[in-house]
């Protein structure tokens, strides 16, 4: 089968709730189709695989031009949440809760569980050495799905022949 050796690697650099999902969804689809999957977490992306942060990922309505009120079922068309409202305490928590509710309704698992599914499905996951050093993150701070902390050069070596997607 031509697909047998296809490899995909995701570089996850964002720690927002909405930016956590693209690699998880595509990585899971790739595993389901027999493709080798590697995830490399760098910078804010390390939030996704850090025990203290993974269940507290958020999406902020401030300066988020895609966040329309119509997503909440209000007939407001292209009207977004005004930035002045976005700065009200609790708005980010509300938006995060809202997105989590929507995802749950679609049967999409929370990030922690999704990572475990990918890990069980054979995905390899690594942390970025430079960011880990900069943020002062320790091995025990990571979820068990993280195999090790590697340098950028290691990542380039281990993804030879892979299609690389930067998120």
């Amino acid at each position: 089968m031509a697909e047998a050796n296809r490899k995909i690697a995701f570089i996850c650099s964002k720690g927002d709730l909405d930016m956590a999902y693209p690699a998880l969804i595509m990585g899971w689809a790739a595993l389901g189709n027999g493709i080798d999957v590697t995830l490399f977490f760098t910078f804010w992306g390390l939030d996704l695989v850090t025990k203290k942060r993974v269940d507290r990922l958020e999406i902020a309505p401030v300066a988020n031009t895609s966040f329309k009120m119509s997503m909440m079922g209000l007939p407001t068309g292209n009207l977004g949440i005004p930035n002045i409202m976005g700065i009200i305490p609790g708005m980010t928590a509300f938006a995060s809760w809202f997105m989590k509710t929507k995802m749950k309704a679609l049967g999409v698992p929370p990030v922690r569980e999704y990572l475990q599914m990918l890990s069980d499905g054979g995905a390899k996951m690594y942390g970025c050495k430079m960011t880990v050093d900069m943020f002062g993150i320790k091995k025990e701070d990571f979820l068990p799905c993280i195999e090790s902390v590697v340098t950028a050069s290691d990542f380039i070596d281990m993804t030879e022949g892979a299609q690389i997607i930067f998120i």
Partner: peptide, 13 residues
């Protein structure tokens, strides 16, 4: 998930 991928290796979906 582990068993599913072991039973149907290389692309269970």
């Amino acid at each position: 998930t582990k068993d599913l991928f072991a039973l149907f290796p290389k692309g269970p979906a």
